[in-house]
Design a protein around this nucleic acid. Structure first.
Lengths: 145, 145
DNA sequence: AGTATATGTTTGTATTATACAAGTAAATCT
DNA sequence: AGATTTACTTGTATAATACAAACATATACT
């Protein structure tokens, strides 16, 4: 079953698998130079965007087991970036929200990341950046099962 | 230091981190339905593209420790997808190459992956796919330290 | 040639992220 | 009020990884 755009799709497959490997490596290196780990960054970012969240919702967002999120959240809480409070309408539920420190960390880290993207994409035209962002967004839509 | 294309870059940063999380998850799910793990897939693909390779070179390619590659390669060898042979010019070096079975596995897996990309990108135009592939390739260039 | 040093790989050990299962606490249903 | 469900935590096992030590082979120096 040969597709008309076989080559383009093969290239996308190739480049995306490569990109993921490199990006994951970059995250690991980042950790060593003081950036937040990706998991922490994503969790803080989610709380910032979506407001207080419970573990179950976070686990679904990140496609991870609740027990994993439970430990992640506890660790991030211990660092003082988030706090936990009881849902007034349901005593079983722990809700998590950003602390001021967490918000500062998030902003700092986000800016460092964006700064790096600026540097990496220095020689791209505005239009190219816009198109890339748009296509990435569509790719992300497509990646949802 | 406000950049003229701040928004586009922020969007790229956002979408890329999201994409990585989703893609990593997809890889884990894939493993469960019979696909090769990403690490195995990448190693087989590299051997196919670059010919017989030594551990040190593989470790550098994937930004992993040599000891990690040593174990990965042994595991893949045990499955029969690659074989090891001595470099005739240097008795210390083990070179790895694909077996016939490994090549078959690689082709099958690659086709499954590409098939899925075809399905995911079904409603993209040819031009969009081409542009996305090209920009991904440039992004990958940019990601090299 | 013989010893010291460098290189390539393997193996031992510790850490981390993860899932699954069992346990605990709180809410809901009857 | 007791049974069931839901939300979370904790115990345990596994896998991927890095770092360090060990081992084998090659190269360099004298």
């Amino acid at each position: 079953m040969q597709k008309e755009n076989q080559e383009a799709v093969e290239r996308i497959e190739y480049e995306l698998t490569t990109l993921i490997r490199r990006a994951v490596y970059l995250d690991i290196s980042d950790k060593k130079i003081g950036h937040l780990e990706r998991s922490v960054y994503l969790l803080l970012r989610h709380l910032d965007e979506c407001g207080p969240s419970r573990l179950k919702a976070l686990a679904e967002t990140f496609n991870l087991d609740i027990s994993t999120l439970s430990r992640q959240a506890s660790a991030i809480e211990a660092k003082g970036y988030i706090t936990r409070f009881s849902d007034p309408t349901d005593g079983r539920v722990s809700l998590f929200k950003l602390t001021d420190i967490g918000m500062e960390k998030l902003i700092t880290d986000k800016n460092m990341r964006i700064e790096r993207y600026h540097a990496m994409l220095d020689n791209w035209s505005n239009t190219e950046k816009e198109i890339f962002g748009e296509l990435l967004e569509r790719m992300n839509e497509a990646l949802i099962d």
